[in-house]
Structures are given as structure tokens and as C-alpha cells.
């Protein structure tokens, strides 16, 4: 067993883990943070994306021991990040609020990863082009319905985050 200490959604966490434990296993199994999903388990679908020191990372392709000393944000903690920045709407991060408003989901399985990836993008570029959004989502797969409303939601969230009055339509 190896000892890891990390910060998860602002909370200090210390655990003894087997070195082969994946970060997503630590989150879901040990910390009960089941909002982070495992879709493909082969680094392709992006349902498991969390922020590691603020950067979108596939938690199914990272060992828990690699996350030692780092700050992890999962979908459960994203709204609190927005609260701290004074950007939350109805207790939601602007990306979450936009996914709700623009119906950027169908079954919802890919949604946590989509939102975490989108929040990562918008944190460094709040005014992406539609093309940039679609390129950014290359590692996030939606198997229900396509990406139209997802892209629309992310463009709208970007508009909110940069304080634009009217969200630019994705069409």
C-alpha cells in the first residue's frame, strides 16, 4: 500500500491505496464521488474527466498515486469553484447551467466529462469559436444524440463567463 494525500473538491483526503488503484477508482469507490463516470475505460470516451490542478485529465488513465499532493475537482465540486469566483447561477457552474438551459444532454452519461472538459477550455479561453469547441471535445464521446446542443451550451456558457449580454448561437 502507498499513502496518498490529495485535495478533492477542497477537502483534504488521505488514504492508503494499492499502487494499481486508478484515480477514478479512488474517487468513486473510496470517496463515493460517483458523478465521475467510467465509460470506455480505454482513455477514449472522456466520461471520467476531472480537473487535476485545474487541468482536464482522464481519471481512468491516471493512478491515484500520481495524484498525490494534487488538487482534484470533480463534477460534484465544480459549482463550488464557480461560487468562489462569484460566477455560480442557481448553485450551478455556468457550464452546468448552460447544459440545463440548452439541453446539452440526453441520457446524461457523458455529461460530467463533457462539463469538466468544457470548464477546462473556458477557463483558458472564454471566447472559443465553434470549431475550437468541437476540436476540444475530441476526447469526449456522446453516444446518444450528437454534439449540437452540447456545443451550443458551451458557447452560451462562454458568453456568460466573459460577461457578454447575448449568447452567440452555435448554428
Amino acid at each position: 500500500m502507498t499513502h496518498v494525500s490529495l485535495k478533492v473538491n477542497g477537502r483534504e483526503v488521505s488514504r492508503d491505496v494499492e499502487p494499481r488503484t486508478l484515480l477514478v477508482e479512488l474517487l468513486r469507490r473510496d470517496l463515493n464521488l460517483t458523478g465521475t463516470h467510467v465509460g470506455c475505460d480505454t482513455s477514449q470516451c472522456g466520461c471520467c474527466v476531472v480537473h487535476v490542478d485545474g487541468v482536464g485529465t482522464k481519471s481512468c488513465t491516471m493512478l491515484a498515486v500520481q495524484a498525490d499532493g494534487k488538487a482534484i475537482t470533480t463534477i460534484e465540486g465544480l459549482a463550488a469553484v464557480a461560487e468562489a469566483d462569484g460566477r455560480a447561477e442557481d448553485g450551478l457552474h455556468p457550464v452546468q447551467a448552460a447544459f440545463r438551459q440548452h439541453h446539452g444532454l440526453q441520457c446524461g452519461f457523458c455529461t460530467p466529462g463533457m462539463i469538466m472538459s468544457a470548464a477546462d477550455l473556458l477557463s483558458r479561453n472564454a471566447d472559443p469559436t465553434e470549431h475550437e469547441v468541437r476540436e476540444w471535445l475530441e476526447g469526449n464521446l456522446c453516444r446518444c444524440t450528437g454534439y449540437h446542443n452540447i456545443v451550443k451550451a458551451i458557447m452560451a456558457a462562454g458568453a456568460t463567463m466573459r460577461g457578454a449580454a447575448t449568447p452567440r448561437a452555435a448554428e
Partner: peptide, 9 residues
């Protein structure tokens, strides 16, 4: 290479 999350690692 890969996608944004893969490129970050």
C-alpha cells in the same frame, strides 16, 4: 496528438 486530456499528461 490524442485529445486535450491526453496531451495534458
Amino acid at each position: 496528438i490524442g485529445d486535450p486530456a491526453v496531451r495534458a499528461m
